[in-house]
């Protein structure tokens, strides 16, 4: 067994044990509360555009956020329209929307819809802004969208009351900002982001273009606390903290050994 095996083992075992001691987060951060308030303040029946802009490799952070946000949206009886610029996101959205929709007795096509993936990124969103049906003639399951009740009275994405973009890439929210908010200042947006996507998005939050965001598993855990559900976010929080402490300790130990080695060579 070599040094890196010991590092992996210590790290893996500490995270594994911590998974059996779920604690969640005691208090939600300001940004998470902003997202919660933005959804909570919407009147019943408001239209929410849900962006499932992530791939399978980031499901660890994205799916807990998706679950908890969809739970809140459906609990508030808001009309949810799911779209995606990434091809794998709609598969996760479909599972979560159908399950939570059934739990709340909501009907597909009337209360919520998963429109699926559309290619084109910037140009697709530019068209989506003015005409949803031009981009999505059918939904994820192949149903015609032309007379779908959930889309009644809605022309384009510019008409929605709020966009909730769950994205593993900073280009997700910025595309919607550039292609919709640039032309319609009333377009409101909150985000669910992976931790690594947050730093490039922070300037847009500072400028007020994005109202708020939730970060990774920690954000999901805080949100679960706010709406009173127990999901992977709550279960994983101790493991996340223990893992981060383990990394800090390993960095410290590594540096101590490095300094000792350098001193020994100097002598």
């Amino acid at each position: 067994m070599r040094e890196h095996h010991i590092v992996f083992l210590v790290f893996g075992i500490s995270v594994l044990i911590a998974l059996f001691v779920p604690t969640g987060v005691k208090e939600a951060s300001r940004q998470t509360v902003v997202v919660y308030d933005a959804i909570e303040e919407l009147p019943e029946g408001s239209v929410v555009l849900l962006g499932a802009d992530f791939d399978a490799h980031n499901r660890a952070e994205m799916v807990p956020q998706l679950e908890v946000l969809v739970e809140h949206l459906m609990r508030r009886r808001l009309r949810v329209i799911a779209v995606s610029m990434w091809d794998q996101g709609p598969m996760f959205a479909e599972r979560v929307l159908r399950r939570v929709g059934d739990e709340h007795g909501l009907e597909y096509g009337i209360d919520y819809v998963n429109l699926g993936y559309a290619a084109g990124a910037q140009s697709m969103v530019r068209l989506l802004k003015d005409d949803i049906r031009a981009v999505y003639k059918t939904d994820f399951s192949g149903n015609e969208t032309l007379n779908m009740p959930v889309l009644a009275g809605l022309e384009g994405a510019k008409d929605v009351d709020l966009m909730v973009d769950i994205s593993d890439n900073p280009s997700g929210p910025t595309t919607y900002l550039e292609q919709i908010q640039s032309f319609h200042k009333g377009f409101r947006m909150v985000c669910g982001l992976t931790a690594s996507a947050v730093p490039p998005i922070m300037p847009y939050v500072e400028s007020g273009q994005i109202e708020g965001y939730i970060i990774g598993l920690k954000g999901a855990s805080e949100y679960e606390g706010l709406i009173g559900v127990r999901g992977l976010g709550t279960i994983a929080m101790t493991a996340q903290s223990v893992g981060q402490v383990a990394i800090l300790v390993l960095i410290l130990v590594g540096n101590i050994f490095f300094l000792m080695e350098r001193r020994r060579r100097a002598v």
Partner: peptide, 19 residues
């Protein structure tokens, strides 16, 4: 800050797989 955020993200992947 970005490195710290990436570490947090990758740790979440490990937790998800273990879970």
């Amino acid at each position: 800050a970005r490195f710290g955020a990436v570490v947090m993200s990758r740790l979440s992947l490990l937790i998800d797989r273990l879970y």
